[in-house]
Each structure stands twice: as C-alpha cells, then as structure tokens.
Nucleic acid binder design. Structure first.
Lengths: 250, 250
DNA sequence: CTTTATTGCGTTATTATTACGCAATAAAAG
DNA sequence: CTTTTATTGCGTAATAATAACGCAATAAAG
C-alpha cells in the first residue's frame, strides 16, 4: 500500500477483497550478534510496536497469504514459516475495536481473531520497507521486548515456546544462518535460542551422528587461533529427520 | 437448534450472531474396547460423515466457543480440549461453497476456514443428542474411518498427530479413562494410541517414578487371575509435569 | 487341590548422555 | 623464527536412562 488513495479504499471496501474478522500475524525471528531478535513494526497513529500482520484475501489459501504477507514485509520468499496458534481469547480479541481514527462503521473496527505464524529468517537478507501505514521497523532482542500493542506479548511468548519445542523435533536452527557456517556459530545459535550452555564437544557429535551437517572442507580465518571448518546442512537428511520425527536432545 | 423456524433464522441471519467465514471443528476422541474412536456426525441432506463443529459467537472468546460446541454435541464439560491447527489451504477451504440446498446469498455459502480442536473424553459419559441438522452420531474406530466430508480426513490425521506428539510431553492419556484404573488398562490405552507394544514392567515403573499415578489400595476382581490394583492420577504432579514440560518416553 | 492366566517386583544388559582431558593449530607478540 | 594465546577437533571415561527379561504371588475355575 503506497498511496493515501489506496489506504482509504482499503478502509472503506477492504472487506470485499479480504476476509473480515481475521488477521495473520507473524513473529519474524532473526539471529544477529549472539542475539535472537524479532521484527517489530511501529504503526503511524498508534503509539507502540506490534508484530507485522495482514489480511487473508477472499480466495487465497491460508499458507499463500502467510507467505505473501511475509514477503511484503521482508522481501523474503521460501523461508521457514510455520503456523502455531490461533488467538481469540484475550479481551482485545473478544470484542470490537475502538480505533478512533477509523470511521465508526468500518469493517476494520470489527472483532478480529489472529492466526499466529512464526518465521525463521536470515537476518542480513531482510530488507524492510516502510509504507504509508508503518512508521518504522526495528529488530528487537527478544530479551528486551517492550510492552507491545494488542495481545502481541502473549503471541510472541507463545511463538517462542512453539519454536523452542520445535527445535527439539526438527533441526530448524540452520534456517537462521548463512548456507555455510562453523560449528561454534551453530552452537552459539542453539545456546541463544534455548538459553542454556551446550557442551562444545558433544553438540557437534550429535549433529554429525544424525548426519545433519556436512563438512565442506573449507575453513574460515577469524582471529588469533585455529581456523574453524565450514559446514552445510544436509537437506536430504534433514527432510528424512523431519519425516521420521527425530528428537534432537542437545 | 430444535425447530425448523430456528434453522431458517440461522441460515438467514446467523451472521448477525456468529462470525462468518470461520468454524470450530472438533475431533472428539474416546477409548472403548481397546480401540481409539472418534465421534462422527452425519448431516441431514449431505451424504457422508464429518467431525462435529460450530460457529464462534460475535463476542464470545474462542476457547469459550470451543467448549460450548463440545458441550452442545456431547453434554460434557471441563474435558481436555486443545486447539491444534487452523485450516485454510485445501481447495474446499479456498473458495465459496456450493451447497445447493442453501439460498444463493446465504452467509453459509461463503468460504470458511476451520480452527481445529481435539478433545479427549470418557467414552461412556458421552450422550450425543441428534438435532434437526444431524441425522446421527457414530463412534468410529480411527483405523476404520471412511472418506469424510470436506477436508476432515486431513483434519483428523493432523489431530491424531498432534495428540500423539502431545502424549509424549503431557500425560494426557488418563483423561480418556475412568477416575480409577488398573495398570493394564492405562498401558493398553497407550499401546492403542501409540500403535506399539509397551513393556508391562517398564511402563508402570516410569509412571510411578514420575509420581503421576497413585496406588489407591483397592483392587478390581476381573477374571481367573490375580486382581489388579486400582490407581488414580495425581493432578498436582500432573500440573507440575505440564509446567516443567516433561518428556514421557514410554 | 491343581491348573491357568496374569499381576507385581526385581535384576541385568544395553544404549544414550554427560563430563572432561589433551593435542593440533592459526594468528599475534616478542 | 620462536613463544604465547585462544580456540578448535578428537577422543575416552563416568553416569544416567532405557530396554530386556526371570520369577514368585495370587485369584478364579476345574
């Protein structure tokens, strides 16, 4: 949405294009400088941050809508994106909204449920683009997230919980990294997400024994010590593990 | 819904009371004669079975709606009920419906997404009540479920999957049994749900070591052999295990 | 009183997880 | 060019968890 005209059309007749009473909201996680970060948006006119979201078009499959919304906000395609919960319980989600700046009869003032998705993206590849509705986007360390708009704190908590649980069943962590990564890098990532230290010697052993990572033969020169090797994820083995439902206890 | 008048009012003006484009559908699981069964409904006018469902009232919290719908269908309250996925991808869920028996402009012909819940109930306590829309309810062994209406086969598969996964994280199995049960009973239940045999000696050992079940001191006389003891679930320990997120590998 | 089927309790074997020790090595400092 | 420093990579031992199984106890039926 670029122009004021488009916005006004959306406010007035958006319900002809989109399903009312329902949004998709997305916790977009990135990893940078040993921190797990979440992408937050500041809306013009509203005082505070929330996670990005959007509406489902009338004949659009749900997962297509989720991917479209993610692409609109981050320019990313084909990233790890997973539905985790649908929200309709909080006070905010049980009744109509009191957005003073909207016409009294706008479809946007109706009650909205929210289908929650979370995405794991490569932090450095995200290019956010502010539009006429959003003042700015910020990456916030999940340990420093302020009070968010609506029920988005609860939503973020639940997204994190599902993501961490999933980390034990699917080796999804690599989706936050570059194609090639060192063992210390992926270990540090897991330590950050799980919030606990892992043994430097046992962790790679597990990944190797499952066949999830492959040695590329290359090394990366970083600092005054032995150069660590570069590894890649084995997509074939990964898919197999997902199918068989491994439990990666690290 | 009891009378034809109510039905017609619902078809015509239901969208004033309920949110459109969205249903709650519920896989209701029961356990009987060593079989895991699911409650299916046959609709008048439609040729085939589906899982029970309903609409969310305009200002009704989502979980309240789910519990209300469960109660309407089974007369049960305060049972284990859990949301697992929201469906909006299948062809059926991506476009408007062609229900010939409904007026062309009925809100019920609009596209509907479905929020999937599953419930674990005590089979013998369920009293289904057919109404003007449902011809009959049947309990079907999950191994013999026929082709269902809409996308309900996919929905059932996903419900089962989530339930089985959850069984490893939360000791939810007992919700399918009577208050007091024998060790062979609960073991047989787990074997049925997980579809694999468990060791008769190791299984109770695990439940006992976690403190999840308590010996009542009573026994039950059943047949030509030693009478098995009756156990109950320790709700306090159960809640603690849920909170701490145990992994019950059996 | 004997037979039969099944329960309850134990012990042992196997496997997985956790905890460390130490040599290899790359870059910087002397 | 040698030494220092920080970190990597590989191994092995200690511990814990899981799986496998033997046998006595016992309730009902013949």
């Amino acid at each position: 949405m670029k122009t004021e005209l488009e916005i006004n059309e959306f406010i007035k007749n958006g319900h002809q294009t989109y399903l009312p009473n329902l949004t998709i909201d997305c916790a977009i996680f990135g990893y940078h400088e040993q921190q797990l970060k979440v992408l937050l948006a500041k809306w013009k006119g509203l005082d505070g941050y929330s996670m990005p979201g959007g509406y489902v078009a009338r004949k659009e499959p749900l997962s297509v809508a989720a991917n479209r919304i993610l692409k609109e906000k981050t320019s990313l395609e084909k990233v790890f994106l997973q539905q985790f919960y649908t929200f309709g319980d909080s006070e905010f989600r049980s009744q109509n909204q009191k957005y003073e700046f909207l016409p009294k009869d706008s479809w946007l003032r109706d009650r909205t449920l929210a289908i929650g998705y979370y995405a794991l993206v490569n932090y450095s590849r995200v290019t956010v683009e502010e539009d006429i509705l959003t003042e700015q986007y910020v990456w916030e360390d999940i340990k420093k997230v302020p009070k968010l708009l609506f029920d988005h704190n609860e939503m973020l908590e639940k997204a994190l919980h599902h993501m961490r649980i999933n980390l034990y069943h699917q080796p999804i962590g690599y989706t936050l990294l570059e194609k090639k990564f060192t063992l210390p890098e992926i270990q540090s990532l897991y330590e950050t997400i799980l919030g606990k230290p892992l043994d430097r010697r046992n962790f790679p052993k597990k990944l190797m024994s499952l066949g999830l990572i492959k040695d590329t033969g290359e090394v990366r020169s970083i600092g005054q010590h032995r150069s660590p090797r570069l590894y890649t994820f084995d997509k074939k083995k990964y898919d197999q593990c997902i199918k068989e439902g491994i439990v990666l206890v690290v």
